[in-house]
Simulated assay, not measured.
Amino acid sequence: MKVKHTAVAALLAAGLLLISGCDQAEKAAQQMLNKTAETAKQAIDDTHKAAEQALSDATGGLIEKKQSEPENQETSNAI
């Protein structure tokens, strides 16, 4: 009877360790996804700024930057 209780306790402990390991893996994956998303957002923002600068240089500043800024803010907030 005592061996049976010990086996059940060991099985429950192993299950708890497995569940906590999965939880840690999920948290690590979520942090990596968040970091990747932030890096991608920064790359998009940098590319957008470079494109605006190139367009401004190409048009001699005829297109006003103020027209695109509200759209940029809405896009950044949506991400």
Rank of each mutant, 00 (worst) to 15 (best):
A43T: 07
A25Y: 06
V3S: 12
A7H: 12
Q24M: 13
L11K: 11
Q42W: 05
A50F: 10
A25P: 00
A29Y: 09
Q67V: 07
A14N: 06
H5A: 14
K35N: 02
A58E: 04
K2I: 15
E74H: 01
K2R: 15
S68W: 02
A25M: 08
A58G: 00
Q42N: 09
P70H: 02
G15F: 10
A58M: 07
G60D: 03
Q24D: 04
H48C: 11
K65L: 08
V3C: 09
K65N: 03
L16S: 10
T6K: 15
T47K: 11
G21C: 11
V3Q: 10
A78T: 03
A43L: 06
A58R: 00
D57T: 08
M32Y: 00
T36R: 06
A78L: 13
T39W: 00
I19S: 09
N77Y: 04
S56I: 02
A7D: 14
S20R: 11
L11P: 02
G21W: 08
K65H: 02
L11I: 14
E52R: 08
K41E: 09
E52W: 09
M1S: 14
L18T: 13
G61A: 09
Q67C: 00
D46G: 05
S20T: 14
I19D: 04
K66D: 11
Q53C: 03
N34P: 01
N34M: 11
A37Y: 00
H5D: 15
Q53A: 15
L12Y: 06
A54C: 05
A50P: 01
S68R: 04
L12I: 15
E38A: 13
E26K: 02
Q30N: 03
K66N: 07
K2D: 07
I19A: 13
K35S: 05
